[in-house]
Amino acid sequence: MAIRKGLGIGSMYYGIGYGFSRADIGSAEIEMAEDGTTTVYSGACDMGQGVMTVVTQVAAEELGIEPDQIRVVAADTGSTPDAGPTSGSRATFVQGVAVQNAAAELREQILDMASRMLECPKENLAVRRGQVCEIESGHEMVSVGKVAHQLHFHGRRAAAWGWHDNTTADVDPETSQGDAYATYGWATQLAEVEVDTETGRVRLTKLVSATDAGKAINPVAVEGQIEGGATMGLGYGLYEQHILEGGIPRTNSLAFYLVPTAMDVPDIECEIVEVPDPRGPFGAKGVAEPATIPTTPAILNAIHDAIGIRITETPITPERVFFAIQEARIRGEFEED
């Protein structure tokens, strides 16, 4: 039997956001219409991973209204404030707080106005499910929309601005000592591989991804990041290589540049770890990159566990493994079956 199985782990930490003095700012505006429906003007680009959904949930939670009352207008220099890029696993961590700040500010305005309208101390009031309620009794006093309308009659906009600065100081130019990032993401993955010692082919047969989300604001979206990240990590490890010869790409087609298909990816098991981070919205932090990084290292270590050979060059193509096995054989170091 030429197939050998092995297990390997890979861990990583990843500075969330820009780090070392690069401006890392989120900002958002939130506005409530007189029927209580609310628009969040958020400059963060959603690429399908779900930052719009995160923004919606954060705003709904903080403001005390329902997600379906919220519309997000996103990423347009003509209509939304600058939220920084969606990159560096920063959108949830940085823009989430900016939106939370905006929603909290609007909620306070609503409660101030409601307190005047109801002649009731503000500290006795809260917003729940779109209604201003008396905290003690839970009694619904007035809808947020009515309060928003009153704000308009009092010369105020039922709108608020939220901002969050995640910028850190630069590290020392000589030693790189310093607080490089506001926080870090953490992840460990376990990979199981099958190595065909006759052909050098490696198959990933199992992947368990333990990724620290701080707090999973939307667990399905977090799983989407974990599974997609590991798949991109698998592509990096085993299949994808942009080959240049004399500076000219030879892999200029998806016929030559191989992206993993559904047949190449095992069922990825998501272990969402939640170690709340006080700097993120409701303890949350980004997972996009932490979920991607450990896969190739875990595969490399699993290959060593399977065949006792250390591969030090990526991607781990069948040719590379095949020749590594032959070289080990020549040196008398390969453990034959």
Partner: peptide
């Protein structure tokens, strides 16, 4: 970089999760 880790440091928890996963299924290197 000399940055002191604080409450948001989750690496031990992720390693522990994998360890628990392996022992629950009796997986061994």
């Amino acid at each position: 970089t000399g940055q002191l880790m604080n409450e948001g440091c989750g690496i031990e928890a992720t390693l522990q999760r994998i360890k628990d996963y392996m022992s629950a299924r009796e997986l061994r290197f």
